[in-house]
C-alpha cells in the first residue's frame, strides 16, 4: 500500500521535527501534523470511527498544549545540551527490548492472521442479531466488551480529578 508508506514517512519526518526543534510552539504544531496524518491513515485503513475520534482529540490536544505554552514560555532552553551517557544507555536498552517484544508479537499475529481471529469473525457475522447495532465497533465497545469501556471511563475520571487536584486554587488551606 504505497499511500500508507507515504503517510508514515511524513509522520516520521514531522515526529523528528517535533522532537528536535527549539521552539516549543513549532514542536506542538509538528505534533498536530503527526496526529492529523494518523487520522488520514485511519481512513485509509477503513476505520472511520477512529478517524473521527482522532481528529477531534488531536484538535483538543493542540489546544491544551498551546494553552500551557502561552501561559509560560515557548523557548526550549535545554536544546544543544550534551547527552548523558546514562540516558543513551537507557534508550538503547529500552529500544532493544521494545523491538524484540514487538517483533515476536507481530510475527505471531502475521502467522495466525489468515485462519484465526474467530472472535472478530463472530462479532461481524452475528453482531446485528445479538446486539441490534449496525456499527460493529459500537457493539464491541458497549456490549461485548463494555467492562473495558467502564475501565476507560474510570481512568478518564481519575485523570480529570488529578488535573483538578494539581491545579486547584492555592489559597484554600484555611
Amino acid at each position: 500500500m504505497p499511500e500508507l508508506i507515504i503517510l508514515l514517512l511524513f509522520m516520521v519526518a514531522a515526529g523528528i521535527v517535533a522532537v528536535e526543534i527549539k521552539d516549543l510552539l513549532a514542536s506542538v504544531i509538528a505534533l498536530g501534523a503527526v496526529g492529523f496524518t494518523v487520522a488520514i491513515g485511519f481512513i485509509v485503513l477503513q476505520a472511520p470511527d477512529l478517524a473521527i475520534v482522532q481528529i477531534v482529540i488531536e484538535i483538543l490536544a493542540v489546544v491544551f498544549f498551546v494553552a500551557v505554552i502561552l501561559k509560560t514560555t515557548h523557548v526550549d532552553s535545554t536544546i544543544g545540551r550534551p547527552y548523558k551517557g546514562a540516558d543513551i544507555f537507557t534508550f538503547i536498552i529500552f529500544g532493544v527490548f521494545a523491538l524484540a517484544f514487538l517483533y515476536v508479537g507481530v510475527r505471531f499475529l502475521l502467522i495466525n492472521s489468515s485462519a484465526g481471529f474467530e472472535i472478530a469473525q463472530h462479532y461481524i457475522k452475528h453482531g446485528l442479531t445479538e446486539t441490534g447495532a449496525v456499527n460493529r465497533v459500537a457493539a464491541v465497545i458497549l456490549d461485548y466488551r463494555a467492562l473495558d469501556t467502564l475501565g476507560e471511563a474510570t481512568v478518564l475520571f481519575t485523570a480529570v480529578i488529578g488535573v483538578l487536584a494539581v491545579l486547584r486554587l492555592e489559597g484554600r488551606k484555611k
Binding site: 470511527d49 447495532a133 449496525v134 456499527n135 465497533v137 459500537a138 458497549l142
Partner: peptide
C-alpha cells in the same frame, strides 16, 4: 453512534 461511525 450505533448506526454510523462515531459514538459517545
Amino acid at each position: 453512534g450505533h448506526l454510523s461511525p462515531g459514538g459517545g
